[in-house]
Structures are given as structure tokens and as C-alpha cells.
Design a protein around this nucleic acid. Structure first.
Lengths: 356, 356
DNA sequence: TTGTATGCGTTATCAG
DNA sequence: CTGATAACGCATACAA
């Protein structure tokens, strides 16, 4: 009466093959891998040795995962395509933070970039993970639907804020307000804003009030609101403040933004940017035009990435790593409040000063 | 005669729940997801709608993977801990290249950093992937054993070269030889080498000939051999060439290397580094000492990362992206020769010149 | 300490 | 176009 174990010979090597070969039960072999305390060390060695000889690759991950109900990995959903994300220092900071948490926990990190919508949804649907971390997604992005459908633990970093999901970020409105106030306090009146993406359409150019109102990136929306509040308090007409929008978050984008802004007449005396990387581009634009910083133009960044200190850039400090650590802790051990706002801080350096 | 389908009510929502609810067979529901052409669009819509209502999250990835025999992801084994790897521009270039290939293919990218040996081996053993890409692993690292055990397609990038596995890299010996020849041709005779890691032990300091001989990183070994060859041809005694070793590949390491080398008496007039990042550190050390480049000291890098052009650094160009693309192609569609050496090229910029 | 029976949720095959 | 059946490889409760 051959049980199903007998078929082993022809196909691949499984637990059963090994058990048959050794004349023990499947359970024992399984235990050798998953519960070493359930058998003698000697028998275990014998089993592992036979496995080596027969070429048994160890428990099949999918089978084990199916049976155990856990995948042993978390999925990281990123706004941008991976090739780009790896180039963004703020995103990289965040990745480093996530990795620092998953790694010692022996939990895998599955990257799920949002490239084409179809393939992304499919990737999310099929991802063998125990939870998702959403990093900087615009409101209403289809990936969110796909993630929600999976009914797994989810945490949102930065955006979207709308979904009623556990959330970790900063008070973007207050942060950008303080950046704006900084230059207003220095006496600047002709200021301009170099915004990060307002909507998920790759637009690169002016963001008029209509576009600002239709922002689908909550962080951008909040930051603009913060700038408006600061202007209101200082008696500066928000309607007269030029706002330019850039995506993706890279040097070239900032350079274009800087050229646009610094080409205005009258020229702004201070530019508040929504990322350090954009600010670096603005600084280069200033250099191109022979403008001195901060004598001719003050520049404020956002994030305080490593290069900001080297570039002597005034900026708002926030910690991508800290966000990541918080998010990971939640996903890995379900710990922490459902939502948390991390601190931010204005770091004043040499790129800002009073107007000439 | 209730079949097992009837249990649906109490537990989670599966294909069967849905099938029972709709009065169709499991197969039909499965087809709605996996083979849309096997049923009418109308029925399919009805099924998908019911799924939405009942909260069916779609086919369980582990179950599907088990049944299909494919995981839909590839594993990337990295030498360094992730937090570090994301900070290394060469590694990031490589990651970008890998992502550029996996992403459109709808294949997941599972990151498997080598942190503690135990957890790494476990992660590799349990990784739900269809193949592995090994990036810059030292000879004899235990992770290699773990990967081999899985009996899945594997490709090696850069290192190790010893394993007889499909391989993609460059001719490290020739590349570093040409870097060394470049400064020798300029007339330098007191040269020094800022090597990348020689062994996987985190050593940071001088690498004497014994240590060089025991190199477990083949690329480093090859490059040193290339330098020696160049010296031999130019009549420079290799034994008199100081070699310092640095890890990890980051600015600080290069700075330390630079201080060590430039603190020698007599001071080298040319330093050949095994990465641009190390070279940047050396440049900073030179600046610290008030040395002018290339008047007082010439510096050569390796990799030609983006920042090299900005820093006007003479370097060896190799393409991490190209390597990645080749590796991914192999893993994804089994295409390409088993092993391939990609081209490299000396890029002469302003950081090298004749000795004073 | 070891073995037996069962089902995790899916899809391929093949018959209707 | 639809439905029944049989694995996929494993881990667990339970019995021995």
C-alpha cells in the first residue's frame, strides 16, 4: 500500500523523500529544521547530512509560509520607480532606517515601486508579505486600493494622510511655516516657494492657486498652507508669492525651479524649497546667474540630508530614519501608537541672511 | 455530503467561500483571477464584485506560489548591511540597474543583506524567490553555501569569482593596472594604493604583503595584482608601494586612508584608490593638509560615479547599471552568455598630473 | 521522542 | 465555457 511518499524517486527532493530514505517520518525531518529541540542532536545531524547528500534544499518557503500563515517579509511601497528612489537621499535615508529594523529581525524587505499602474497593482496583489509600509503615496493612488484589499497591517509614512491608516510623519504645515517665517523674520518680503510635486502627473512649472487647491500630495498641500499662514501673519500677500513645482526630487529639477524663480522681475530675495535636493538646484541656479548667497538671495531647504551641512544650507531637519524605525516597529511587533508625528527643527546655517 | 468547502463560514475568506457564495466552482473563481479568458466577462465581473463585498483579498500568494512553483521575485544578496549599502553610490547604481529590469517585468525584488551570519543564512533559506543575484560577496562566505543549497538560478556580480557560477564583472586586474599605469606614465615614482577591503573582517589600516596574499575579495586581489604588474613594467619596486585598506566604502574610510598615506615620509606623489568614494576621502585629507591637487598629489578613483565628474576626479569608468542589467536579464529570462566581462575605461580628469 | 492524519489555498488536468 | 479531482510541500494536534 504505497502512500504518497513512495513517489519521491522521480520528482524533486522533499521532506518525504528524505524521510523515506532515512526510514523516519516526515514529522521528524520537519522537526529537524523547524523544532530542533524535538529530536536528539544525533538524529538531527544524521538528517541534515542526508539532506546534504540527497540535495534537499530545506523546507520549501511557499509551502512553509502557506502552512504557517506568515510570509516573513514586509512590503515597501514606494512612490517612485526604484531607479529614481535610490537616487533621492531622503528616500535612501528612509530605506536605511527600514532596513536597520527588518534586518536584525530576520524579516525580508520586498520592494514594490509604483511604476506602471497595472504591474504595480499586480505586484502588490501577489506580494508574499505580512504587512505593508506605504511611503509618500499621493491621495487616491490605485496602489492604496490594492494594498487595502490585502487586509494586512499597513502603515503610512508621510502620505497619504487621508486614508485613516496608522501614520507616521511630521507636522508639515508647522515645519514649512517655520521655514517661511525664518526668512520673513530676516526681513525678506519678496519671497518665493520651490514646491515639491503637487499632483502625481509629473508637472514641472508654475503652480497657480487652482493647482495648489487641487493638490493630491497632502504634505505639499500642508506645507503650502503653512507658508500661506506665515505670509498672512507677516502681512505679505500670498497671491503675490510665486510658487513653482518640481518633480522628481532631484538636482536637475531644483535647477530648473531656481532658474524660473530667479529669472523673475522683480527677483525674489528669498526662496523656500520643499527639499534640500531642490534647494541645491536652486543654489546652482544662483551661481549660474552670478548671485551671491545669502547676500543676493537666501535659500532654505527641507530634510537636512547629509549634504546640507556640507553645503551650509539652512533647512528644516526631519529624520527619515526615525520615521522608518517607527514604521518598522509597528509592522514588526505591532508596537507604538497608531499614529505619530515626529519632531522637526529649523537649522539655521549660512544660506540665509537679511536682504541686501 | 458536505465537502470541505462548507467550512467557509467561520474562517477566513478563500476561493471556496466565494465559490459557495456564488454557487460556482472554485475553478471558475480561480479563473476569474488567473485566466480571465476562460470565462465570460460578465461572470468575471460578478465574481470580482462578490469578492469585493465578501472581502476576499485575492489568491493567497503563498498558496499560488506553491501550486505554480514560482515565487515571482528574485533575491539580491548584498555584502553589506542594508543601511550601509544604500549609502554607497556604486551599490546604489547597481540597485538602480536591477530595479530597472525587475520592475517592468513585474518581478519583486527581495533584499537580503549579510548582517549577522545566522540570520542571513536563515533569510536566504526562507526567501520566496526564483533566483539569486550575489553582489560583491567575499570568497567562502557562508551565504554562498546557503544560496547554493537552494538549487536555484544564481548569478554573481563582481565577486566571488571562484564559485564556478555565471558571472558578470569587469577585468579588474587590467582596469586597475591601467589606473596605475596612468600615474606612472605621468612620471610618478612614489605612488601608493588606497585599497578597498581585502578580507571580510572590517580591518582598516595597512595591508602588508601577507595580508594581500590572503585576500578573500577577488576583485581587490586582482586589482592589487594589476598594480603590481604596472609597477613591474615601470621598474618601480612593488615592495616599496604602501597599500592601505579601507572598509566600508564610504567617505570617512577614504579620509582615514588619505591621512595615513599622506602622512608618510616621503609622501607619495600619487594615490590610486579602488573606489571614487575612497578617492573623495583622500582628496579631503589632502585639503586638510593644505596640499594642492594635482600639483602636490595626484589622485585616481575607480567606478566613475556621478560625483566623480563634479569633483573633476580621474577614474576608471565601469557601469554598475550595465552589470545589473546583464545579471537581471540572465535571471529573468535566462538569456546571455554564462559569464561576461563588461568594458571599463580610464577617464582622465583634473585630479592627476605630472609630479611637481 | 517519534509517527499518523489532516488541511493550509491554490491551480492544472481533464472531462463534460 | 464550467466543474470535479488531485496534487503542491509542509507543520501541527494528537496518539503511540
Amino acid at each position: 500500500m504505497p502512500k504518497d511518499g513512495e513517489r519521491g524517486a522521480g520528482g524533486r527532493v522533499t521532506l518525504q523523500t528524505l524521510a523515506d530514505h532515512l526510514g523516519v517520518s516526515r514529522t521528524t525531518v520537519s522537526n529537524a529544521y523547524s523544532r530542533p529541540d524535538q529530536l536528539t542532536a544525533k538524529l538531527r545531524r544524521r538528517i541534515l547530512k542526508a539532506a546534504e547528500e540527497l540535495g534537499y534544499p530545506g523546507p520549501h518557503p511557499a509551502a512553509r509560509s502557506l502552512r504557517r500563515g506568515r510570509a516573513g517579509a514586509i512590503g515597501l511601497v514606494l512612490t517612485e520607480t526604484l531607479p529614481y528612489a535610490f537616487g533621492d537621499p531622503y528616500a535612501v535615508n528612509f530605506l536605511q532606517g527600514i532596513a536597520a529594523a527588518t534586518e536584525p529581525a530576520g524579516v525580508g524587505l520586498l520592494l514594490l515601486p509604483l511604476s506602471r499602474e497595472d504591474t504595480t497593482a499586480e505586484a502588490i496583489t501577489g506580494a508574499a508579505v505580512d504587512g505593508f509600509c506605504l511611503f509618500s503615496l499621493p491621495d487616491g493612488h490605485p496602489a492604496l486600493t490594492a494594498v487595502l484589499r490585502r487586509r494586512l497591517p499597513v502603515i503610512v509614512v508621510d502620505e497619504p494622510r487621508s486614508a485613516g491608516l496608522p501614520y507616521v510623519g511630521i507636522d508639515d504645515r508647522a515645519a514649512f511655516r517655520s521655514a517661511t517665517e525664518h526668512v520673513l523674520d530676516l526681513g525678506h518680503r519678496r519671497i518665493a516657494v520651490a514646491a515639491y510635486r503637487v499632483r502625481f502627473d509629473g508637472h514641472d512649472g508654475w503652480a497657480d492657486s487652482a493647482r495648489q487647491a487641487g493638490a493630491t500630495f497632502p504634505a505639499t498641500r500642508e506645507r503650502l498652507a503653512g507658508a500661506r499662514e506665515a505670509c498672512g501673519r507677516a502681512g505679505v500677500d500670498w497671491g503675490s508669492v510665486p510658487v513653482t513645482e518640481s518633480a522628481p526630487n532631484e538636482h536637475e529639477s531644483g535647477l530648473r525651479a531656481g532658474r524660473r524663480l530667479l529669472g523673475l522681475d522683480p527677483r525674489p530675495t528669498a526662496i523656500v524649497a520643499m527639499s534640500d535636493v531642490l534647494a541645491f538646484g536652486v543654489l546652482e541656479a544662483a551661481r549660474e546667474l552670478g548671485l551671491r548667497v545669502p547676500e543676493n538671495v537666501s535659500v532654505v531647504g527641507f530634510d537636512d540630508v547629509a549634504a546640507a551641512a556640507a553645503a551650509d544650507l539652512t533647512t528644516i531637519r526631519q529624520s527619515g530614519k526615525e520615521k522608518a524605525a517607527t514604521a518598522a516597529r509597528y509592522l514588526l511587533i505591532g508596537e507604538g501608537p497608531e499614529s505619530v508625528l515626529l519632531p522637526h527643527e529649523l537649522v539655521v546655517r549660512g544660506s540665509t541672511g537679511p536682504p541686501a
